[in-house]
Structure formats: structure tokens, C-alpha cells
Nucleic acid binder design. Structure first.
Lengths: 339, 339
DNA sequence: CTGTTAGCGCTTTCAG
DNA sequence: CTGAAAGCGCTAACAG
């Protein structure tokens, strides 16, 4: 069945294409009777407007591009879901770019300065380089970063330093002094925002404040992942003076620590306290104490912010906005006083 | 900066737009020197072709729509990742439609018969109704179902009956006879494919084969979710003659059962065996025995199948294909002999 | 090899 | 109120 066009409808209804277009866009100035006639023709031909043609003509697409590194990560998925909620509500489509390699990352950022395909761009957990930002800015496309930072771009963030501080403080208050920190690699090839590095800073602040000396041996890092974190935990627990508590830069890594403890038959929290970061869904199932960050909300806020920019006058650059989301300690059952 | 068009480039290079188009599409018949000239003009103007215009002209979009119910579910995410891998490799974009309500579901299927925006459609875990299928078929758009079934549509599936059988058989071989089954609601409002129902069938087959009588009390269902499954498990474990083993229709639900056991201080697998279904990532962390299904692979196969259809002659309807993926028991540490 | 031209399907002046 | 016509930016067929 050859899909019909606006011209077919016009012919069928005995009107001009302009009129059909007007009823399609519910333009007020169409006589009721003509409107009816057109509507009947539309129904008869089972006509649907071609969005691509419309986009070309309008210069708008109703598409938002979302680039997410490792969207498989539970935290990214939660954020995405927040984004999706808002886009759906606004009748926008979500075009997803997953980034798992440096190549893909570069390709994506190279692609974006050409922006006819999208009305806006949302970037999760990935900070573009200055040069890329320059091109983005120049292209005039609305951009919002979620969980990533750049002074010239709108962004929604959390206070990672404070998060690290909160987690460590919690352990200190329980009486721990031998507190380790496991993170992913601070300087990742993807130019991640370095959340782990900032959480590390909070960790050190809390330590310093309590007069506990920082021990470099207690700080370990590796690629992000359960296995890797498990390995690091084993290293720590094999030390002659092992930590009594471990703070990890993410819940996923905390799971690795929990597994290591299990493998060594160490009971948690009696013999080892573990605190994560993020509060992803499994954290609850595992009774993991963690720092909760509003993941879903970050997606919602980011998308809202983006639409705010989109609706601004195209001329007036909308001011660069920064939204900081609140953090909260969620005490479950993996932390307790030291043995 | 007013984005430049192909005409600007043509003028700058002193050639016709046709020639520019040809170098853009690396058409062989362009003299090396002209090509160079055009390329210089492109660079000078920092020109990028407008994909929308290209799409309109070509009648192709390089977009694939993916509709996924609850893409938050770990199993959907894994599948999506498989899909994404293939699309990226083929330089297609992925437009994601999340479906969490009946309304959204209907809207999405209503939207799709108009298919200029996408070159193909991938549907996860959602079986369209006959009427919807008819419209889809009529529109001539290539469609592939993943983890869903419809006789007239291409699909990649697993043998759920066999999966249910395998899980139950495993428990029986361990010596269990009091085996319960927890599933989500068989007739969901989303017209899910009823995987749980088929797994239930396998469960009953295995029971029958072993001469174990089916007890209706041992079959419980509720909405899909950890909390719900936990509730059902508590019900089962409160019976005067509680089951010694529980098979759940998904790993997520098995997590709920595990939590219930934990709350009752029942040790697993000594006092209670638990087996799930899917083998999502956390299953490993939880040492959950489960039926592994190739989630990532299902996405890959589905996408490949879709491209196969797309590349067929548009005229010749490609034959309806069914791909059945293999299942495998993964024995970890939540199943053992009955007490 | 390369310019020119006619669309792709829709929106939007601009007359009437 | 409504029809005709001029694009949106690109591709492809057709002459040279």
C-alpha cells in the first residue's frame, strides 16, 4: 500500500495542500465544514503525515540525543529512566548513544556539532573537552550535562566531595579508624568527570577532621566492576593490618567487596563494614549501607533544564545553570562498629 | 553561525551541487582534483550535511525504533545492549520507546504504522495484538520481536516451557518434592507474551514426569518485583507444609525469595532451595542458581535478523523467521538437597 | 566527469 | 478562509 501524501489527501478532499496542512496543525482559520471534509479524506486514505518532511520544513525534529557511557550501569539506567519520563511527556523522542570506548566517545562528540537531527543534547557522566564544548556552543545547540561538569555548560550534579565526606564520617562515628577507599581509576580514558576523585577528597577531609592519618595503602583503584573491586578488597584484607571498614566509590564496587568478604568468611558488618555510593536498586536487596544520590531525579531535572533552554529565544543564549542535587546517608546492615 | 548548505559548498568550490553530493557520498566518478577542491570548501565552511534532508530525499533514515517495556529491568537492559552493539556497528541510530503503561503501549503501536521515521522496528518482550500486527504488516516495515511471539512476525525467542522444566527437574533431582512456583501475573494488562505461563507449564511437566502431584497452594503470583515476590515467599513459607524449594519466573523474584528466607533466618540452600530464571548480572553476585538465557545475544540476533529483512528486496516479503536461543542451567549456591 | 533540474512531503507566505 | 507557489537541504536522473 503506497503511503499517501498530503497531496493525495488534498485531491481526495478537493482542497489545496495548504488547507490540509492547516487542519493537520489545527490552525484556527479553517472553516468547520472544510475541516470536516479534510478529516474524512484523511481517514479514508488512512493518511499519516511524514515526520521527516515536516522536520525538514520546520527545522525542528522533536528528537533529543542522549549520550550515556556504559548505559548498562544501573546508575545510568536509572538516570535514563528519569530522562525518558520527561521526554515522553513532552512528546519528544529519545535517541540513545551508548559510549563504551574512546573511539565511540570521540565519534559521538564529533557527530554532534551538526545538529539538525536533534533539538537538544543530554550527556550523562561524561565531560566533553574544551574544544568539543567550543564546537557545541558554536553550533548553538542546547546541551545539558547530567552527572558531569563543565563551567560553560548547563549541568545537574551532586556534591561528590560531600558524599565522600558523609560516607567516611559515618564510619568514623561508628568508631572505625582503619578505613579504606576503593575507587575506579581516577583518570579514566573517557575523561569521566572524576567523581571518584572528588569522593576521595571528601574521604580525606573526613579523615583529617577526625585526626586520622591517611594511609596510602588503604587507597586502591582499578577499572570499574565487581570483579575488579573484589580483587582490590582481597588485597586490602590481606594486609598485615587490614582495614575494618571499606568505602567504595560505587555500589557496584561495594558488591565486589561483599563478595570478597564472603569468600574469606568474614561476617559483615561484625568483622568488616562496607559502605557504597549511589543507592542503586540492588543496594536495597543486599542491605547495603550507602550514600543515596537521586539518580532518577537527575534525569528528570536534566531533561527539564534542557527544555528550558530549548524554549528560550534562540538568540538569547540561556544562562549557564548548575543544579546540585542533595545526598543522603542510607544506613542499612553492612556497617557497624569495628570488631 | 548560520549553518552552511550544500549550495554554499558548491559555490565556494565553484562546482555544482551534484558534484558536492557525489564527493559526500564518495561516488567514484569524480576527478581527483575536483574532489580535492570540494573537500577544501567543505573544510573551509566547516560544512556538515543535514541528515534530515538526506533522509527525506533518500526515503531511508538509518534509525531503528526499539520499544521496550520497563527497560529498567535488568534483562531488558542486557537485551538493549545487544541491540545497541549491532546498530552502532551498522551506523544506525537507536530510538528508544519505553513502555510502562497500557496507554503508552497503545500509543506506541498506534504510532508505528507510520514508518517514514524508522527503517525498522524491534519490539522487546511485548506481543502486539493481531490488529496491530496487521497494520504493521500492511505498512511494510521490517519488524522483529525479541522475547515475544507472534506467528506472523520474525522473532527471537527461548523455549520457556523447557526452561521451566529444566529448573524444576534440577530441584527434583536434588530430591525435592515440595516445590513451589512464584511468577508474575500470567495475564498481564500489557499482553506480555506470558513467558511465566509457559515456564509454569514446564514446571508442571517436570512434576508430572516425576510423579509428583501438583499442589495449587504451591503456585503463587503477583506483580513483578522484589517486594511482591518476597510477600509470596512469606505466604508459602508460612504454610503448614511449606515447600522445600522455590522456583521463580525471574531472578528478580528470586531475590525477593532470598530476602524472605533471610528475614525468617532460613539458611539457603540448607533449609530452602531457590532457583531463578534469566541469569541477570546480580544473579552471579548473589550466587543464585538459575536458568541462563542469552539476553545480550537475543538483542544481537534480533537486530541482525532485522537488518536481514531490511536488506531484502522491499517487494519480496522476507519469510517469517523464528530463532530459538538455547537455555542452560547455571548451578550456583542457592540450591541443594532438601533438609 | 560534471552542471542542471526535478523531486522527497510538508509548512508557510502571499495573493485572492 | 483557502489555493498556489516557494522553499527546507539533499539525491539522482539526465544531459552534455
Amino acid at each position: 500500500m503506497p503511503t499517501s501524501t498530503i497531496r493525495d489527501v488534498a485531491r481526495e478532499a478537493g482542497v489545496g495542500v495548504g488547507t490540509v496542512s492547516r487542519v493537520l496543525n489545527s490552525h484556527p482559520s479553517v472553516r468547520e465544514t472544510t475541516r470536516r471534509r479534510v478529516e474524512r479524506a484523511i481517514a479514508a486514505l488512512n493518511y499519516r503525515p511524514n515526520p521527516i518532511a515536516r522536520q525538514l520544513s520546520l527545522g525542528r525534529t522533536s528528537n533529543i540525543a542522549v549520550v550515556a557511557p556504559f548505559f548498562i550501569r544501573p546508575s545510568s539506567v536509572e538516570r535514563l529512566r528519569g530522562v525518558e519520563t520527561v521526554l515522553t511527556e513532552r512528546k519528544y523522542d529519545l535517541v540513545l548513544y551508548n559510549v563504551e570506548t574512546q573511539d565511540k566517545r570521540d565519534e559521538v562528540f564529533r557527530k554532534f556539532p551538526r545538529f539538525d537531527t536533534f533539538d537538544g543534547l543530554l550527556v550523562l557522566t561524561l565531560a566533553p573537552e574544551d574544544e568539543e564544548v567550543a564546537r557545541l556552543l558554536e553550533s548553538g545547540t542546547p546541551v545539558v550535562l547530567i552527572d558531569a561538569n563543565h563551567p560553560q555548560l548547563n549541568r545537574v550534579l551532586i556534591d561528590d566531595v560531600r558524599g565522600g565526606y558523609l560516607a567516611t564520617k559515618h564510619l568514623i562515628e561508628l568508631g572505625h579508624t582503619r578505613i579504606a577507599y576503593i575507587s575506579d581509576i581516577l583518570e579514566s580514558p573517557f575523561r569521566f568527570v572524576g567523581a571518584s576523585a572528588r569522593r576521595f577528597e571528601g574521604y580525606r577531609q573526613a579523615l583529617a577532621e577526625a585526626g586520622i592519618e591517611y594511609r596510602p595503602t588503604y587507597y586502591r583503584h582499578d577499572l570499574h566492576g565487581v570483579q575488579e573491586a573484589k580483587g582490590l578488597a582481597h588485597e586490602l584484607l590481606s594486609l598485615s593490618e587490614p582495614p575494618t571498614a571499606i568505602f567504595t566509590a560505587s555500589d557496584t564496587q561495594a558488591i565486589g567487596v561483599l563478595r570478597a568478604a564472603q569468600e574469606r568468611a568474614l561476617s559483615v558488618p561484625e568483622e568488616l563494614s562496607v559502605i557504597g555510593f549511589d543507592d542503586i536498586e540492588v543496594a536495597e536487596y543486599l542491605n547495603l549501607t550507602t550514600i543515596h544520590q537521586p539518580l532518577f531525579t537527575s534525569g528528570v531535572e536534566g531533561a527539564e533544564l534542557l527544555f528550558q533552554c530549548i524554549s528560550e529565544q534562540p538568540e538569547r543564549q540561556c544562562d549557564v545553570l548548575e543544579v546540585i542535587l542533595p545526598l543522603r546517608l542510607v544506613e542499612r546492615q553492612t556497617t557497624g562498629p569495628p570488631p
